[in-house]
């Protein structure tokens, strides 16, 4: 199996799992959000890499170029980035309100306060 030739997929997998680890393992809500952003960015990278053709260029009809990369994944990811930003913004706003309501952004301390 060609491991080095597929290095961008390895980057994708490592980033994805790093983000996922932070989401699952970190009790701090901000760190969870950072993990979430990393997790989503990994997917964006994956989309961009499979749209790229070795030696391909931007799909503008002109002199010389014959190989074009697919522009569609980039357009899709532009949309997905907007979604990701909104999610992060909403998440941060929630963390702010949690901090106001509980005085903490550590998951275990919040759960302690809600325990009956």
């Amino acid at each position: 199996m060609d491991i080095l030739g597929l290095y961008h997929y390895w980057v994708f997998a490592v980033l994805l799992m790093t983000g996922f680890y932070a989401i699952v393992a970190k009790p701090n809500l901000i760190k969870k959000l950072i993990g979430l952003s990393l997790f989503q960015s990994a997917v964006f990278l994956c989309y961009i890499t499979f749209g790229k053709l070795a030696g391909g260029t931007a799909p503008i009809v002109g002199k010389g170029a014959e190989l074009f990369s697919s522009p569609l994944p980039q357009v899709l990811i532009l949309t997905a980035i907007v979604v990701s930003i909104s999610t992060t913004a909403l998440g941060l706003a929630l963390v702010l309100r949690i901090k106001e309501a509980y005085g903490s952004i550590e998951e275990d301390e919040i759960q302690e306060q809600d325990a009956p």
Binding site: L16, F20, I23, L29, K32, L36, F39, Q40, V43, C46, A80, T87, L90, G91, L94, V95, R97, I98, A101, Y102, E107, I110, Q111, D114
Partner: peptide, 21 residues
């Protein structure tokens, strides 16, 4: 509701991102 919705946000986004992959 705030801490509940934060959990929902994290899990919902992970779900949507899985779908995106």
């Amino acid at each position: 509701a705030l801490s509940a919705v934060f959990k929902y946000l994290i899990m919902g986004t992970v779900g949507a991102t899985f779908y995106l992959v």
